[in-house]
């Protein structure tokens, strides 16, 4: 167990080295969500409840940033599979589970940096900052990022250096996941089939909880469902990811 912890920390620290050294890369990685924010925010209608539309939209963009960042991360592993450094790590005494878990845990760091940037960008506008809620939401999103990151690594391992396979599957899943989670548009009044997909998408609950928390409210059921949704993604992701890493050669 102690070797697992030491190995996991070793892998995580190694993965974080480029993040600390080149923090701007973290900003570039979130260009797309920022563009969405800049383009969509002015188009948003005022909410029926009278609240700022930004208040509704920003949590979705935050969740989108987390999903995008973590789902891209497998490409780094693919690069390492191609260059040979993944092979070198497989021959080292580092345990297979640590090679996956350490990588997945690392996803939390760039995600938190990105959330901080988004919050800093929108706070001067009509966005009410509820710091406690944002921090609680960051915890839910951390769990979610770990899970999505693990799934992305599993996909990279399964693609075995065939980049097109990784990108096709990642891109094919990304936008349906975002849309059916109600990130960009509310799911109210969606046709029934879409509503069913939305209820099955664990990210839906994550987004709902993040919205509530960003608004400074703590509805126990919504928050619990959000944590559960993120936990489901994390458990499935880590399980699939560790399995894939054990089979990697």
């Amino acid at each position: 167990m102690t070797t697992f912890v030491a190995d996991t920390l070793n892998v995580m620290n190694r993965e974080l080295k480029p993040v600390w050294r080149e923090p701007m890369a973290v900003v570039f990685a979130m260009i797309q969500p920022l563009v969405f924010l800049g383009l969509f925010a002015p188009l948003l209608p005022e909410m029926a409840t009278g609240g700022s539309a930004l208040q509704w939209f920003v949590p979705g963009i935050v969740a989108m940033t987390a999903l995008m960042g973590a789902s891209f991360t497998g490409s780094n592993l693919m690069e390492e599979m191609q260059s040979g450094s993944h092979e070198r790590q497989l021959v080292s005494p580092l345990g297979r589970p640590a090679l996956l878990v350490g990588r997945a845990l690392k996803e939390v760091v760039p995600m938190l940096m990105q959330v901080a940037i988004i919050v800093a960008v929108v706070t001067p506008f009509s966005f009410d900052l509820h710091l406690g809620g944002v921090l609680a939401a960051a915890l839910v999103l951390s769990l979610f990022s770990i899970g999505v990151g693990a799934l992305s690594f599993a996909l990279a391992l399964a693609s075995k250096g065939q980049d097109w396979m990784f990108w096709t599957i990642q891109q094919t899943l990304l936008f349906p996941a975002l849309l059916t989670a109600g990130v960009l548009l509310p799911m109210d009044g969606a046709p029934q089939w879409l509503e069913i997909v939305s209820t099955l998408n664990p990210m839906t609950y994550v987004v709902d909880a993040v919205r509530a928390l960003f608004a400074g409210t703590y509805p126990a059921d919504v928050v619990a469902q959000g944590v559960a949704g993120a936990a489901v993604v994390a458990v499935i992701g880590l399980w699939v990811g560790v399995r894939a890493m054990r089979r990697s050669s």
């Binding site: 080295k17 260059s83 080292s92």
Partner: peptide
């Protein structure tokens, strides 16, 4: 291939490998 990760610094990779051992 190359055992050292392309995005890493050489010294960091050596230290991390030593820690792994």
């Amino acid at each position: 291939g190359n055992g050292a990760g392309h995005r890493q610094l050489g010294r960091d990779e050596l230290i991390s490998q030593g820690r792994a051992h």
